[in-house]
Amino acid sequence: MKIAHLILAYAAPAQLSKLIGALEDEHAWFFVHLDKKADLNAFAFLQNHERITLVPDRVDVGWGAYSIVEATLRGFKAVVDSGIDFGYVNLLSGADYPLQSPPEIHDYFVRNAGKNFMEYYSVHNEWTEAIPRLTEYHLTNYNFPCKYLVQKWLNKLLPARTMPAGLEPVGRSQWMSLTLDAVRYMLDYLDGHPGVTKFFKLTWAPDEIIFQTILYNSPFRSSLVNDNLRYIDWSKGQASPKVLTEEDLDRVLASGKLFARKFDLARFPAVIAKLDRKIQNHHYK
């Protein structure tokens, strides 16, 4: 089984290089979307590598905006357009890192072939704090003077938004591991439902809802596993997860997950060094 690791990155070329190195394997290919703001010269190591594809038509990604959905879709399209018959497409950020060796990751997906791994909590029943993302207008994806004033008046004057196409919204984490068939389905679905794209362009952080919702409301629902296979620490209650350090390592490794985030090689290199040793020890057993 071949695995496509689709990595969304915007900075930290040294850390991205280490991430790719930790996942390199005869079964692994890499598709990297670099934020349009990133300096390509700093990522020259990605060039001329037969198993690394730089996603074309880079997107200028804004936090909480639809632009990250667009970057992901362009990555998905690059994977599909490669013509390689991948068993899984594994969506990562440049701040992620594996907790298992490449053979262990490969074997896990072989044992679970056909399953789609992502978090999908009901927005209306379990993840209710996300309801305003869908019922209110959000202009996060747009850039023009006084846009937040316009947004305020849109929400004062217009009725609450409703989900398009009869979709039941679910979601949570944007990071997921999907079959190539599921990725193809999402691309085809959005091509055929422009109203869904239009709706999510006015949604805050749509990357945490759009893909899960499409698959949940599709024939793929029975294949979904409500587990994104990632260790992420939200204990600080902030908008972004905790940056993991050596103090977290025992909990991270005890989680049994395949990947974890977030890491910062520049600030906390020791935790990644220890993970490398753990991965290498398992690799060569």
Rank of each mutant, 00 (worst) to 15 (best):
I7M: 11
N48C: 08
L34K: 01
L40M: 14
L16M: 08
L46S: 04
A14W: 04
A12E: 13
Q47H: 12
I7F: 09
D25Y: 15
A14P: 06
P13R: 07
H49G: 03
F31P: 01
A9M: 12
H33V: 02
W29I: 00
D25H: 14
E50L: 11
A42F: 05
I52E: 03
Y10D: 12
F30N: 02
A38S: 15
F30D: 01
A28M: 07
L46G: 04
Y10F: 14
D39C: 01
F30W: 04
S17L: 11
L6Y: 07
A9S: 14
E26H: 09
Y10N: 15
A14F: 10
F45S: 08
A22Y: 10
Q15P: 05
L23K: 03
E24V: 07
N41S: 15
L19C: 11
L6V: 10
V32I: 14
Q47A: 13
A38W: 03
R51E: 03
A11F: 11
K36W: 01
K37W: 05
H33D: 02
L19V: 06
L23A: 05
S17N: 13
F30Q: 02
N48Y: 08
F43G: 07
K36A: 14
W29S: 15
I7D: 08
Y10K: 12
L40G: 14
F43V: 12
A9L: 12
L40S: 14
A38L: 02
A22F: 04
E50Q: 13
Q15E: 12
I7T: 11
L40I: 08
G21Q: 10
W29C: 09
A12I: 11
A42T: 10
L34S: 01
T53V: 15
N41W: 01
H49M: 07
Q47F: 05
L34M: 05
E24M: 07
D35M: 01
G21V: 06
D35G: 01
A22C: 07
F43L: 02
W29N: 09
L46V: 05
L19K: 10
A12F: 13
A22N: 07
N48R: 12
L8R: 14
H27I: 03
N48D: 14
L6T: 08
L16P: 04
D25C: 10
L19T: 08
W29Q: 06
L23V: 09
L23Y: 08
R51N: 15
F31K: 02
